[in-house]
């Protein structure tokens, strides 16, 4: 071994502010994504994902300002997702200090975007986020946060974007997301065994045991969660201590 499993808090950002409430102690401003990011980095988060859900025309400007502010103050890597539709969007974010960008619906609409981004910036910069839902026994890719179904089979799609140059996959199970009943370990294992780029598990984290399970049962590279971290239900130092006790390699 030597490569640690990563723990990744995900922050939803709207108009430059985090939208889900956060009840950390000692936070001057619970809505400030930069302060939150800094706090998580101090607690031992390995990486951060910011999901921009701003719908206004001003979105690009606020996103770039946010990325710069985070890069100035936070000393761990971070990914920006949401609203990235073309090379120019990614270029601005890269130059503002983002380590990776995540694309989702845009990749489904025009799969060549994955190739273009990988060629322009290197595959390590390109995360493809996939929202999946089980419909009549089939795992199908969904768009717009799981609201719009497609007829694209999830595993096939992930293999395709890997070949096109994705450097990492962020897989969210819409069936598990929000349930706090655990990650979709069956699907995650199936996907993880079929690809040779890193896989981030997302959707369903409710307890420390769920993180132990996802790493032990699927061997994914990273696990992402939002509310359990934001509401302090799981503290990252405690979680990492638990994982270590279970012989799962984590960074301290």
């Amino acid at each position: 071994g030597g490569l640690a499993k990563r723990i990744i808090p995900c922050l939803d950002v709207k108009d430059g502010r985090t939208v889900k409430g956060v009840n950390f102690v000692d936070l001057r401003d619970a809505g400030d994504p930069v302060e939150l990011a800094w706090q998580y980095s101090q607690q031992g988060a390995d990486e951060l994902v910011f999901l921009d859900i701003t719908a206004t025309h001003e979105r690009r400007k606020t996103m770039v300002e946010l990325v710069k502010a985070v890069a100035r103050q936070v000393n761990i890597p971070f990914t920006i997702g949401g609203g990235i539709n073309e090379i120019a969007d990614a270029d601005i974010l890269l130059n503002a200090g983002a380590d990776k960008i995540s694309i989702n619906s845009a990749a489904v609409r025009s799969p060549e975007l994955v190739n273009e981004l990988a060629n322009a910036f290197g595959k390590q910069f390109v995360v493809v986020a996939v929202d999946t839902k089980n419909i009549n026994g089939k795992n199908l890719v969904h768009l717009n946060g799981g609201r719009i179904p497609t007829d694209i089979e999830t595993k096939k799609w992930i293999k395709e974007v890997e070949e096109r140059g994705a450097g990492e996959i962020l897989l969210t199970s819409m069936d598990h997301d929000g349930t706090k009943g655990g990650f979709d370990n069956t699907l995650l294992k199936k996907i993880n065994d079929s690809i040779s780029i890193p896989l981030i598990a997302s959707g369903g984290a409710g307890s420390e045991q769920h993180f132990i399970d996802v790493f032990k049962l699927t061997n994914v590279d990273a696990a992402l969660a939002a509310s359990v971290f934001h509401y302090g239900e799981i503290l990252i130092p405690d979680l990492k201590a638990k994982l270590k006790k279970e012989n799962i390699e984590v960074r301290f």
């Binding site: 071994g1 490569l3 640690a4 890597p77 040779s196 890193p198 590279d221 990273a222 960074r251």
Partner: peptide
């Protein structure tokens, strides 16, 4: 898996000035 992505343990081969005050086995990104 390639790219090698994440925090990996780093071990010193020699005592050296670049890793001054950094514990052997520290993780780097």
């Amino acid at each position: 898996k390639v790219p090698h992505t994440g925090w990996n343990k780093v071990c010193s081969q020699f005592e050296n000035e670049l890793f001054n005050d950094i514990k052997d086995g520290t993780y780097f990104y």
